[in-house]
Design a protein around this nucleic acid. Structure first.
Lengths: 187, 187
DNA sequence: ACAATAACTAAGCATTTGCTTTGATATTAT
DNA sequence: ATAATATCAAAGCAAATGCTTAGTTATTGT
C-alpha cells in the first residue's frame, strides 16, 4: 500500500503549542510552525487542515497539561493552603528558563478578544468557572464562613488567578511572590 | 506659498489611539488607520513617518489621558479610600460603551512582549513604578504601619491594578466590583 | 494673475501571509 | 518485482501588509 508518516502527530503538536504559547496566534506564521514542528506545510495541512486546526490541537494539549495542577488542588486536603500552592504551581508550570509565558488560554482571549474565536472563549469561561468552583470547595473545607463570603472569596481568588496568569509574564518573581502572599494574608 | 493641512494632527491621533486601543498594534493595519483617521496613507506617513510613529503618538496621548485619574489620586487626601477610587476610576476610564479596553500600555507589552518594543516597555515600568510610589504615599497617609508593610502593600496593589487592567477586558462588572472590594477589605 | 509649493488621490512596490499544487520518493500488499 | 498510493520537498498562488511614488489639485506670497 502506502508509506507511513515519518512524524508523530502528538509530538509535533507539543512543539506547535510551545511556539503558540511563546508568540501568540497571529505572530506565529505557518513558516515558523514548519520549522518548529520539523515537518513541512503539506504535512501540517494534511494532518490538521489549517493553522487554526493546529492551534485547536495545541489548546487541547495545553488543557491536558494544566489539568495536572488543578488535579493536585482537587486532591489536596489542605484547604486554603492548597489554593495558595496552586498559585505558586501555576508560575512554575508556565515558566520556561526563568520566564513566564502566562496561560495559553488567557493569552489567546487577550490577543483575539472575546468575539473572534468563540470556541476558545467558551473554553476559557468553562475553565474559569470550574476553577472558581474548585476554590469554593477548598475554602469551605478549611473555613467556617457563610455562603456569601465563600462565594465572594472564591470569585475574588479566581479573578486574581486570571490576573496573575497575565502579570506573571512581566513582573519579577519577587513582586509575584509578594502579590500571592498578600492575597492570602487575610484569607 | 503652499496649501495648508486639512486635518489636525492631534485630532487624527485621537482616532488612531482609539483604534490601537481596541485592536492592538499588529491587528491595526495602515488601511484601517487611513479609514479611522480620515486621511490617506500619504498624509499619515508625511505627518508621522511610519505606523510605529503613529503608535508612539497614540501612546503619548494615552498617557496624558490616564494622567488625569492619577492626578486625582495624587491630589486626594482620603488615603487608602482614594486608591480604591482609583481602581474604579480606571474601569470607567477604559470603558467604551460598557466594554473595557484595558490599558493601552499593558495591552501592548502583553501583545509584543518585553523585548520587541523597548521604548514601550520602559514607559510601562516608569508608569508602574510611579504608581507603586503613589500608592505607598497614600497608604502612609491613612495608616500607621511599618515601612516594610507599606512597601509590601503598595507593591501588591500595583500588581493587582496591572492585573485588573487586563482582566477588566474579560469579566463582568459584577466580578470586577467583587474583586476590588475584596482587595481593599483588609487594607 | 501666476509661479511656487505643500497636500491631496490613487496606483504600485516588495514582502509576508495562509494555503495549494506539482512532481518526485519511499513503502506497502500482492 | 511491481503497481498502488501515501508522504515528502519545493515552488507557486492570491490576498494583505507597510510603505513609496507618480501625478493632480489647491492655496499661498508676490
Amino acid at each position: 500500500m502506502a508509506r507511513k508518516k515519518e512524524y508523530n502527530e502528538s509530538e509535533v503538536i507539543e512543539s506547535a503549542m510551545s511556539l503558540f504559547w511563546r508568540n501568540g496566534y497571529t505572530n506565529t506564521s505557518t513558516r515558523m510552525l514548519e520549522k518548529e514542528m520539523g515537518i513541512n506545510q503539506f504535512s501540517i495541512y494534511a494532518s490538521f487542515g489549517s493553522k487554526h486546526g493546529v492551534f485547536l490541537e495545541s489548546i487541547k494539549l495545553y488543557k491536558s497539561k494544566i489539568k495536572e495542577i488543578t488535579n493536585a488542588l482537587n486532591e489536596s486536603e489542605n484547604g486554603v493552603e492548597a489554593i495558595k500552592k496552586y498559585f505558586y504551581d501555576f508560575i512554575k508550570f508556565s515558566s520556561n528558563n526563568n520566564k513566564c509565558k502566562g496561560c495559553l488560554l488567557t493569552n489567546t482571549v487577550n490577543e483575539l478578544g472575546l468575539e473572534q474565536d468563540k470556541l476558545i472563549t467558551k473554553e476559557v469561561f468553562n475553565f474559569t468557572n470550574s476553577l472558581k468552583e474548585l476554590f469554593y470547595q477548598k475554602l469551605k473545607e478549611s473555613q467556617i464562613k457563610d455562603e456569601k463570603t465563600l462565594e465572594s472569596q472564591a470569585a475574588y481568588l479566581m479573578v486574581s488567578m486570571a490576573g496573575l496568569s497575565v502579570v506573571s509574564k512581566v513582573f519579577s518573581k519577587e513582586l509575584l511572590n509578594n502579590y500571592i502572599e498578600n492575597i492570602f494574608k487575610n484569607m
